[in-house]
Simulated assay, not measured.
Amino acid sequence: MKIGIIGSGNAGQTLGEALVKRGHVVKLGTRSPQKLDAWLNQVSDVRASVGSFDEAAAHGDIVFNATSGAGSLKALKAAGSHNLQGKILIDISLPLDFSNGILNLFVANTDSLGEQIQRAFPHVKVVKTMNTVSAALMVNPLSLAEGQHDLFISGNDVDARNEVIGYLKDWFGWESILDLGDLSSARSTEMLFSLLVRVHMTVGHSHFNFKVVR
């Protein structure tokens, strides 16, 4: 499959490398292609490439939004609504605000970044997921507790959610994915970040996740 990734930070690079290793043709979209020379050398596979935001969006049959939350809408607009139209956009971003020196969420409770993206791109199938785990766990859930922990998924399009659930199981080995329903549920998973920060501070690392015991 051809996959475009908008964003070239740690999450985007980790996803890109994992997907290439699974045989997919991946293009990372970035404002500064030269900064990904090291990533290209590390991946060392002709199926990995780098381009602009619009090139990555046009390339992908499926597109990931792996940008920083504050820059998501701007980056996706640069990617071009015509390149995203009708496609599934897997949104893994978080609405993080560092402006006052304290880590906060710039949207919470009554809205979410996932919903803002969906309103800005009404003809795109936005699916929110993977925003509650570290990049390393995104692509290798079996590295923790033999995979016995949960991932959450939200989206207004039921078929798109089910399609992404299938991809997450097939691509990365996720075994338990809880479908929370429409995108309003992304408010909860985005706000979960506040708890994740505190857990990280307590245990001293990000290699953890939650399990819903039923």
Rank of each mutant, 00 (worst) to 15 (best):
His24Glu: 12
Thr67Ala: 12
Gly80Lys: 01
Lys77His: 11
Thr14Leu: 02
Asp37Trp: 04
Leu89Gly: 04
Gly166Ala: 06
Leu178Val: 14
Ser32Met: 05
Arg31Val: 08
Val43Arg: 05
Leu15Ala: 11
Ala11Lys: 15
Phe98Asn: 08
Ala66Gly: 07
Ala38Asn: 07
Leu183Cys: 01
Ser134His: 03
Lys169Pro: 03
Leu28Met: 06
Leu40Arg: 09
Ala79Lys: 00
Pro122Thr: 05
Phe172Gly: 10
Ala18Pro: 15
Thr129Gly: 07
Glu115Ser: 14
Ser68Pro: 14
Glu17Arg: 14
Ser81Cys: 05
Arg22Met: 14
Gly114Ser: 11
Trp174Asn: 09
Asp37Tyr: 04
Ser52Glu: 06
Ser154His: 00
Gly4Gln: 07
Val63Tyr: 02
Thr14Gly: 11
Ala160Met: 08
Val197Thr: 08
Val25Asp: 13
His82Asn: 13
Pro33Tyr: 01
Gly147Asn: 05
His207Val: 03
Phe172Arg: 09
His82Lys: 15
Gly12Pro: 05
Glu146Pro: 00
Ser188Ala: 12
Asp150Thr: 03
Gln34Lys: 13
Val197Phe: 10
Leu40Ile: 09
Val203Leu: 11
Thr67Arg: 04
Ala186His: 01
Asp159Met: 14
Thr30Ile: 09
Val213Asn: 13
Val212Gln: 10
Phe121Cys: 08
Asp150Trp: 08
Lys87Asp: 01
Val63Leu: 05
Ile102Leu: 10
His59Phe: 14
Val46Ile: 13
Asp182Asn: 12
Asn10Glu: 15
Ser194Lys: 11
Met1Thr: 13
Gly166Thr: 04
Ser194Pro: 00
